[in-house]
Design a protein around this nucleic acid. Structure first.
Lengths: 192, 192
DNA sequence: CCTTACATGTAAACCGTTACATGATTGG
DNA sequence: CCAATCATGTAACGGTTTACATGTAAGG
């Protein structure tokens, strides 16, 4: 699903500026979706060109004009169509995991430090999601569902990292460099 | 981290053809990294040009030549340098979650069906990771660590989905369409 | 006979991220 | 005075996906 659809969807929850959309994303769906201004503004401009959103100009804080976008009936229809034809893909791209994957090529302290930093990031994300309920009572069902899913995954990750950090570190320390642990011949897995 | 580095890393575990690399990826790190042939082959060609991998041609099954790549000492050095300077980013892009996020715009049966399909995918992935240990005894520490992390996250997701599927469905059914659940005025969260 | 697995590669299209460019206001 | 917040946008670059192009061998 592209960013245009996501913006349209976010706008189905109420009008917003490009800036607002980014903030909303970060607050409520940063655990499975991210977008930068460089994607959002052009997306909004195109949606406006296509008539799926309307734009109203307002003087914002400081006298500079701000563009408040709202979804149009045509936009709602389009959103429904796009959601109906979207495939529910799911992909994770984790350099953190990749680095852990090659951990025996790195100094154990660095690996441990990375785990520490990652734990910090995850805890921040988790707190953000927990705060979300405290503030917005009676969240829309979709938002509550994805929030719960995020919390479950984040907690599981924290638990795993905390439970295995020390053991991983000592395993790495006791086996300084990547010795020849076979991984090529039987190609790890199938009967072949 | 780009695909070139990832290929170099995979080759640090033993020589392989482009085809092998893709299979390995799918078997052991598909839960946090993916690459298609269209990325792998050019990556390998460039690494060879730079002298980080060596290429040996062999007659493969069927008489067609296959190119077996192996990492060179220069490649090992380069890999170390790249891993040392890599930032441990982590990003999830989930259209599945996005669709759940906008669930009240979709027919409840479709939402439920998507959850069912997703559960199937996750269970397949989980099984693949579980099989990995049964086959390759004594996995390298990094691989064992990321495998464990994947299993933990996958299990947590399955548990969440199973526990909340029915409730989500009935919530959606009892509230047919996106009524005006405010999400704009207090902007969900902070004191502003 | 047909499909799956093995095997390699190119080119174009599509998308998104990053960096750049600008500017006012508020609070420390 | 400096940093942060609010606010909008463009352009270049980098990266991946998809489609195209080709061919053998084994198994059902």
């Amino acid at each position: 699903m592209d960013i245009r659809t996501a913006c349209l969807g976010l706008l189905s929850y109420g009008e917003a500026t490009g800036y607002d959309i980014k903030q909303r994303c970060e607050r409520i769906c940063s655990h499975f979706f991210a977008a930068g201004y460089g994607s959002i503004y052009p997306a909004l401009a195109e949606l406006a060109r296509e008539g799926f959103v309307a734009c109203r100009e307002e003087p914002g804080a400081g006298g500079q004009p701000r563009k408040v976008y709202s979804i149009t009936p045509a936009g709602r229809e389009e959103l429904l169509a796009r959601l109906a034809s979207a495939e529910p893909k799911h992909r994770v791209h984790s350099d953190f995991a990749l680095l852990m994957f090659f951990a025996d090529l790195l100094p154990p302290e660095r690996v441990d430090a990375m785990i520490g930093r990652r734990l910090g990031d995850i805890r921040d994300q988790l707190e953000r999601l927990l705060r979300l309920e405290a503030a917005g009572r009676g969240l829309p069902p979709g938002i509550a569902f994805t929030r719960g899913m995020g919390i479950a995954v984040l907690r599981a990750t924290i638990d795993y990292l905390e439970a295995n950090r020390a053991g991983f570190r000592s395993t790495l320390a006791s086996r300084p460099k990547q010795e020849d642990h076979s991984f090529h011949h039987p190609d790890t897995g199938d009967p072949a």
